[in-house]
C-alpha cells in the first residue's frame, strides 16, 4: 500500500492524466446535454495530450531549441524530448477539427429538434415513431 503511494508521488503526471481522462469520460457517458458531451470529449482528448507532453519532461533541462552555432556539439541530455511535443501538435489540431465538426452537427440537430437535451430528442423520436 505504501509502495503505491510513494510510486504515485514520483509519477504524479500519470495520476493527473488519468483523473482528467475519467472526468471527460464521465461527462461523455452521463450527461444528457449534447454540448456538455462535446466538452467532455474535448477534456478526454486534452488528457491524452497532457500524458504525451508530460513524458517528454526531463527535470532541470531546458526547451529543445539548440544554440545557433552550427559547429558546436549538442548534448541531447541537456534538452527535453522534442518528439512528443511534435506529435501533440498534430493531436491538438485533430482535436480542434473534431470539435468543429461536432459543433456543426449539434447546430444541425438544434435546428431540427429545437432542443439540445438528448432525453427530449429521444422522446420526440419515440412519439414520431408511435404516430407513423
Amino acid at each position: 500500500m505504501e509502495q503505491i503511494f510513494t510510486a504515485m508521488g514520483a509519477k504524479y503526471n500519470y495520476v493527473a492524466y488519468i483523473i482528467l481522462m475519467m472526468v471527460g469520460l464521465y461527462a461523455m457517458i452521463v450527461k444528457s446535454n449534447l454540448v456538455k458531451k462535446i466538452i467532455g470529449m474535448s477534456i478526454f482528448q486534452t488528457s491524452i495530450i497532457l500524458f504525451y507532453v508530460s513524458t517528454a519532461y526531463k527535470t532541470g533541462k531546458t526547451i529543445p531549441i539548440v544554440p545557433y552555432d552550427a559547429h558546436a556539439a549538442v548534448q541531447a541530455a541537456d534538452f527535453i524530448n522534442p518528439l512528443p511535443h511534435v506529435l501533440m501538435l498534430t493531436a491538438i489540431v485533430v482535436s480542434v477539427a473534431t470539435l468543429g465538426v461536432a459543433l456543426a452537427l449539434a447546430m444541425k440537430i438544434y435546428r431540427q429538434y429545437g432542443t439540445l437535451e438528448e432525453d427530449d430528442i429521444h422522446e420526440d423520436l419515440r412519439s414520431e415513431e408511435g404516430k407513423s
Partner: peptide, 23 residues
C-alpha cells in the same frame, strides 16, 4: 501506471532512443 518511467526521468527509453538524433 506504476511500471511507467518516473516523471522527469532523463534516461527513460523514450528520451534516449530516438530523440537525441533529432536534437
Amino acid at each position: 501506471a506504476m511500471d511507467f518511467p518516473d516523471f522527469g526521468d532523463g534516461r527513460s527509453p523514450a528520451n534516449t532512443y530516438l530523440s537525441p538524433h533529432f536534437l
